[in-house]
Structures are given as structure tokens and as C-alpha cells.
Simulated scan of single mutants.
Amino acid sequence: MAIGHYELKKAKNGQYYFNLKASNGEIILTSEMYVSKASAKNGIASVQTHSPHEALFELKHSTSKQPYFVLKAKNHQVIGVSEMYNSESAARNGRQSVIKNGSTSDVRDLSEPIHDSI
């Protein structure tokens, strides 16, 4: 059974963030920005720990009334945010995908440029 993965990236401002992707490559959860790579890795570890617990997800609505969800740690700090969905049922399906894929240990570090050697 295919399972998702994390992609750790560096933003243009020098900070780090990660996306959790489902097995089909769709982004299902995005982190906040972190000052250090180590902090971003800790964020991934927190999602891995907390994502199996449905009670830690909160369904919200944007100012334009689009549903989305957040995943919170047990201390109530938001550790990931979903995309905007066109219905609450689609948001619930997204939440189930995070529950299914969040515990993956597949972390792909894309934060450093790859240099080809000749």
C-alpha cells in the first residue's frame, strides 16, 4: 500500500517548512515557517506523533466560508494547516488522509540545492 511522505523545503526568506503529501502527490498538510531546519524536523516529528489522533484536528472556515482544518499538538499549538476545500465532506476526507499518511517516516529533504558533479 502506497503511503505519503514529507517534503522539507527552504523558503526564499531562508526559513524552513514542510508539506505532507499523500501517495498521489497532493499536499494534504503544510507547516508554519521555522527559523531552523532542526525546528522544522521537530515539527515533522510532532505531526507524526499527533496525526493519528482525530480529536486533535479542528475544522475551520476561512473568511470566504471555505472549510479547512488544522492539526494541533496536545498543547493546542497548531502544527499543520490544510488547503481550502469546497465542502466540509472534502475537508473531512483530507483529514482522513492526514490521519492515514501522517505517521510516515519518509522525509525527503529538499532544502539544499543539489549540485551535479562532473
Rank of each mutant, 00 (worst) to 15 (best):
N75S: 04
L29A: 14
G14P: 00
A22F: 15
V98S: 02
S64R: 10
N13D: 15
L20Q: 07
E58P: 03
K9N: 08
S117G: 12
P113R: 00
I44Y: 02
K41V: 14
N42C: 05
P67M: 08
T49S: 10
E58W: 00
S64V: 07
A22L: 11
N13M: 06
I27A: 15
N13K: 09
R95N: 09
S117K: 14
K74G: 08
N24M: 08
H76C: 05
Q96Y: 03
S97Q: 04
K10C: 11
N75V: 01
D109R: 03
F69N: 07
Y85N: 10
S111C: 04
S23V: 09
E88T: 13
T63Q: 13
V78D: 04
R108M: 04
A91F: 05
K41L: 15
L110Y: 10
S105L: 09
E112S: 09
N86V: 08
S97P: 03
I118C: 03
S62V: 11
K37M: 00
P113N: 03
I44C: 11
Q77R: 11
H115I: 15
F57P: 02
R92Q: 01
R92D: 00
A90P: 02
I99T: 05
S23P: 10
V47C: 09
N19A: 06
G25W: 12
D109A: 11
K12F: 01
E58M: 04
I28V: 15
A2S: 12
T63V: 12
N19S: 11
E32T: 10
H5S: 02
K74V: 05
S89H: 05
E112K: 01
E54G: 03
K21D: 12
S64E: 07
L56N: 15
S36I: 01
I27L: 11
R92W: 02
S97D: 10
Y16T: 01
P52I: 01
S117L: 15
S105K: 10
R108A: 06
Y16C: 00
L29P: 07
K100M: 07
L20E: 01
N24H: 14
K72P: 06
M33H: 01
Y68G: 08
T49N: 10
G25I: 12
N13C: 06
T30S: 15
S82L: 05
V47E: 13
G43T: 14
A45S: 15
D106R: 13
N13S: 15
H5E: 04
F69M: 06
D116I: 15
V35S: 09
I3A: 07
V70G: 04
I28G: 13
P67A: 04
A38M: 00
A11C: 06
R95A: 06
K65H: 11
A11G: 08
P52N: 05
E26H: 05
N24Q: 11
T49E: 09
L110D: 07
G43Y: 03
S117Y: 14
N13L: 05
F69Y: 02
T63G: 12
H115T: 13
Q96G: 11
L59W: 01
E83P: 06
N42V: 09
Q96I: 04
H53P: 08
